[in-house]
């Protein structure tokens, strides 16, 4: 049970002066239940890559396998794939259209051809899972705050019960608190239901705290792929392509250079605090 991307290339405006290679022979495997962050610049190919996973874009060459099946096979049901690999795009405004939030969330399951009762149950369940306040179920989705719109949009995809959920820049435009709330919600969803989650983001600091695996995209290729610690160990390479590692990782690297005995693979404030504290105690007792 997994998603395999096999030597996928994607080009657009082919045959013109503007030809762009958005993906260049990318190969990847995404296993069930993983929590992945895909990071890269605007134009690095990260959004193009995830749009191949649910078959919305078709590779110029190479193929994508879902559970061992080639999704480009003639009789492969792409509509069915999209209910299994759910995708929430960057702006919730691009998908909200119904008169009430509840009806909007029902749109996906309705397209799956489920009966009315099942549709309503799915919508209710999805809204519960994203922590959407019940008193707003009958509100117009256009009157919601940024954070609530985002939740409604995520619920709209969750209601189809996908086993993979892709979120493209889920925190864009949110304030810090709203951003943390959404990321926390996504994490707890992953912990509870073990669905595969793929976060697409250009912010290292956001993602480092949450995911188990980071894929860095650059120039249409996979640049790095590993756990946050493995990836941030390449701070120099990341900087060379204009991506910053978290501030605390830089701090640890600089302290290490100055002779502090600290672990430089630290990525979060909490880890940094523990490391510095440990090293600080060692230093203090040594100077006594």
């Amino acid at each position: 049970m997994s998603l395999i991307v096999d030597k996928v290339s994607y080009k657009y405006s082919t045959g013109t002066a503007y030809e762009v290679t958005a993906l260049d022979e990318v190969s990847l495997e995404i296993k069930d239940g993983e929590f992945i962050g895909i990071i890269g610049h605007t134009g690095s190919g990260k959004s193009t890559l995830v749009q191949h996973l649910n078959g919305i874009l078709k590779a110029t060459s190479g193929t994508v396998y879902y559970n061992g099946q080639d999704i480009y096979d003639k009789d492969y049901d792409l509509k069915d794939l999209r209910t299994r690999v759910g995708m929430v795009f960057q702006y919730p405004e691009h998908q909200l259209f119904e008169t009430t939030v509840f009806e909007d969330v029902e749109f996906g399951p309705k397209n799956q051809g489920l009966d009315e009762k099942e549709v309503a149950e799915r919508a209710y369940d999805a809204l519960q899972r994203v922590g959407f306040p019940e008193e707003y179920y009958d509100q117009s989705p256009f009157d919601l705050s940024g954070g609530q719109k985002r939740r409604a949009a995520i619920a709209g995809v969750l209601a189809m019960k996908p086993s993979v959920l892709i979120l493209d820049e889920p925190t864009a435009g949110l304030d810090p608190k709203g951003r943390n709330e959404i990321l926390d919600m996504i994490r707890s969803m992953h912990e509870k239901s073990h669905i595969t989650i793929i976060l697409v983001s250009h912010s290292m600091e956001d993602v480092a705290n949450y995911v188990d695996r980071i894929i860095v995209m650059n120039d249409a290729k996979v640049f790095l792929d590993g756990t946050p610690k493995e990836v941030f160990a390449h701070s120099k390479d990341l900087e060379a392509i204009g991506l910053a590692v978290p501030e605390v990782t830089y701090l640890m690297l600089e302290l290490k250079e100055m002779g502090w005995d600290v672990d430089t693979t630290v990525t979060t404030v909490e880890e940094a605090r523990k490391e510095i504290l440990r090293a600080y105690e060692v230093k203090k007792s040594a100077s006594k």
């Binding site: 810090p176 709203g178 501030e247 605390v248 701090l251 404030v269």
Partner: peptide, 14 residues
Amino acid sequence: RMDVPQITLLAHEL
């Protein structure tokens, strides 16, 4: 509802 930068937060926690 505001955040502080990582370094400021770390200093505070330390």
